[in-house]
Amino acid sequence: MADALSADVPAGGLAVTETTKGTERLHRAIFIGLAVLVAVAPFVAYPVFVMKVMCFALFALAFNLLLGYGGLLSFGHAAYFGMASYVSAYTAKNWGLTPELAILSGTLIAGLLGAVFGSLAIRRQGIYFAMITLALAQMVFFFSLQTPRFTGGEDGIQSVPRGKLFGLISLADDKALYYVVAVIFMAGLLLIYRIIHSPFGQVCKAIRDNEPRAISLGYRANRYKLAVFVLSAALAGLAGSTKAIVFQLASLTDVHWSMSGEVVLMTLVGGLGTVFGPIVGALVIVSMQNYLASLGAWVTVVQGVIFVICVMLFREGIVGVISRAIKRPL
């Protein structure tokens, strides 16, 4: 913090955040490439697998919005993901809501939860912030464990109906559902991209880099922090609600702290503070889990090892390294 205060421009910060014409064109190309990739993926890969990757990628993107652009490390994002997953599953199954309404209600509840938890957590900074978000998320976990009438306890909410989109189009077929998930994912990504590159996003980055300076310029830092927290929680909720519809299941795994750890890992592997990094990270981690699923507890060990390697040797992440090689922010 001290050296950031003395420098007029945070070292390297300008080069990374500056959006030139060329960069904009590159990003547009990546978006189009990604859209094409997502469109053809179900013909070459198992659609449920790609849907899982997209749900977790959206989750990681939401997390990265908070950490990469708000500078806030939340260790409790499973709370929003999991709670939204429960709400979406419950409303779709017990109230018979159509999938889009179920997903919407999950997202809203996650946003509300984010507003409550966010306003508590931003009272402290740095390491305390991480501990508070983790503790609050653990409270949600215990709540889920102790209210089996709502969450189904250890069994979770099983066989959630995929329902009919807008009451018209049946999503029982994987392909039909796939394109709904793809639209949600691309829309989420575009929204996050817009948030990051909006004046609001610029102020958030200013607060991340130098909070006292941003405050002295007249920005109410806490309001921006809370706003980015709520947005991140709601988008994590969007990912969780969609996941519940795709897998027709909401369970305690979604609210457990290890889920919070997983999303941190995805973001770290892909590249902290890069726009596209979390997508790559989610692809890597979800694929790894699929291939290593038979190894049981070794998956935890492998994840831990990746954590240590990333932190010690590979802090920029995959996309971060590419970004540095081509000298363009990604």
Partner: peptide, 27 residues
């Protein structure tokens, strides 16, 4: 080796170590 970095990296490192240790004992 992380002393000069943001303290959050220390948190992430020790979290990873906890996963490794717990996973090994569980195995």
């Amino acid at each position: 080796r992380l002393a000069h970095l943001d303290h959050l990296y220390g948190l992430l490192l020790t979290f990873g170590l906890a996963l490794i240790i717990q996973g090994l004992f569980r195995n």
